[in-house]
Design a protein around this nucleic acid. Sequence first.
DNA 1: TTGAAAGCGCTAACAG
DNA 2: CTGTTAGCGCTTTCAA
Lengths: 360, 360
Amino acid sequence: MGDPGGTGSSDGPGTPARRLKRPTMSDVAARVGVSQALVSLVFRNQPGASPDTRRRVFQAAEELGYRPDTAAQLLRRTRSRQLGVLFTMRQPHDVGIVEALYPAARKHGYTLVLNAMVATRGERQAMEELLGLRSEAVITIGATSSWQHLTTGATRTPIVEINPRTRAAGVDVVRTAEHKGIRQAVDHLVALGHRAIAHIDGGTMPAAAERRRGYRAAMRRHGLADHIRVHPGDYTEESGARVARDLLARAQLPTAVIAGNDRCAHGLLGTLLRAGVRVPEDVSIVGYDDSQLARLSFIDLTSVRQEAAESAELAVRAAAERLDEGRTADRDIVLDPTLAVRGSTGPPRTRSTPDGDLLR
Amino acid sequence: MGDPGGTGSSDGPGTPARRLKRPTMSDVAARVGVSQALVSLVFRNQPGASPDTRRRVFQAAEELGYRPDTAAQLLRRTRSRQLGVLFTMRQPHDVGIVEALYPAARKHGYTLVLNAMVATRGERQAMEELLGLRSEAVITIGATSSWQHLTTGATRTPIVEINPRTRAAGVDVVRTAEHKGIRQAVDHLVALGHRAIAHIDGGTMPAAAERRRGYRAAMRRHGLADHIRVHPGDYTEESGARVARDLLARAQLPTAVIAGNDRCAHGLLGTLLRAGVRVPEDVSIVGYDDSQLARLSFIDLTSVRQEAAESAELAVRAAAERLDEGRTADRDIVLDPTLAVRGSTGPPRTRSTPDGDLLR
DNA sequence: TTGAAAGCGCTAACAG
DNA sequence: CTGTTAGCGCTTTCAA
């Protein structure tokens, strides 16, 4: 092996990046003996070339190792048909949405350009790049809208925000009816006989405020206002673990806890189990997201489900409506979550303590 | 709010994608009263424009909402200075590498183009797209090299594979000395007094074969050939959970298990804990990757560490060497892992069973 | 069914 | 310091 296709070692060190030019459409055209424009036709599957020509074009392309140049296509085409995606890789549910975005985009005739938000590269810079790459619209997942000002002016790129952390005007939003999800969780626990139901919130994370409000409202609806306990947290395992340690240090545990998301629930569950607390016998736990984590056999977490595929499809559709159908009014799409009941919730143990009220 | 920047609602439905043309360099140039080329200079921070001109150019650009067009830059520039990244979002360690790739690329003057491998879009298609986007080189993470044939011919794009699943010629590889990692794990366990040390392998996943071989070799080196037990698995939590259930069904548990990666160890740990087995008192567990999972307080997994940042830096450097220094010979870069000792390993309980040998 | 020609928005080389 | 010129590789329109 070593050097297929080339007299090769004429590059020595000190010869930066002198690679053979990659073949262009004109090269293919020349080889077949047709015009370059016709080759373009063939590659775009447009009518107007004889079957024989098509065959010869493809064959020549193959022989030359020709590959269409996206930059040139993008530059010349009226539409890029690309959607930018701004996402984080650390939340399992967000990853699920990204994965679901691929088929959704394809269905609407779009292609995806990913851009991750990582610590060393803010949301803002990522958005900037996406816009430079001719994304016709940008879909953000769990972002903070801190780039709002970037997309002002005459050429406003449509933005669709999935589960945004903050609310912004002039964009489409696809989100979950968080209060309904939380209410289902509370209803489920109350139906099992729980009263002391605590909540670990998500601080400033996406949707955390609504989940917190939903929890309070649902508790009050059941006449359990006195049992409302909100423990500050975020969407990480360690915040769940920390709350677990706090709870363990107290005289009484609540009989049930609704975590801000699955990762937080995981930390709570793991820490409680380690301490010898049984789940759900001693404490019931509910997560949020119904991510892959929740479905693991040894975690088996009751969790509020938001369909990633549905969010993805609706987000792409919202973008397509602006782009292809000229919609200009903002859309606020709210999805109803459902509760996936699993093994982490069950009836509370009726304690034989003299004081009848738990965690009072 | 509703319609900032525009007389607005002249688009109605049925007017697909009629957005105002975005401003170009010429527009900026016209507004300032200089040539377009000069604006280009300014934006590239090249010498050759007066401070005053620069200021005015930037101001005009700001007012117009001008943003450089990447497609045009890419098309015209001799070099794209873009590196394609082919990755999966489901392995925590791989995500860590992607994150580390951003600063590494910037340091060498490159930009990253991400392309995820998801179920509905094979490795091959992802690689195809990356090449179309003018990536000067492609870095893959945990891939199978199934795209090998795509990059043949005269214009070979350099490929750097981080922790590949299969071995290929004509590419650079950055990988871990797996046998050393496993050996450290075995040494650590043996030093603690363990003899019955089992291994859950990773099937066809990246590096699994070498870890398996390394395990066998290390066990033999300690004269523990009779205790070699390889349980088939993969790199998911459920495979660890399944092995845990298998082990629990037997008379004797091994005193220690080395899992194929952290996710697998997590499944093993979680399932054993649920069954009332204590870790590390009854069973010690070692993971592999030292991912964020391993560091969680309630998991606290002894694990073989591979530095994501180091892999990322070396991969970018390998690409840069080919691109900027004309290297043509393949490189095989092997990193030494270290063992991060945490709470999931400890001395085995000396059992009071008449038979002195465990799991015989 | 095919071809010619005109650019997309920018960079790079040169000339003033 | 600034302007002119010539394309990058492709799509699009118009003619043949």
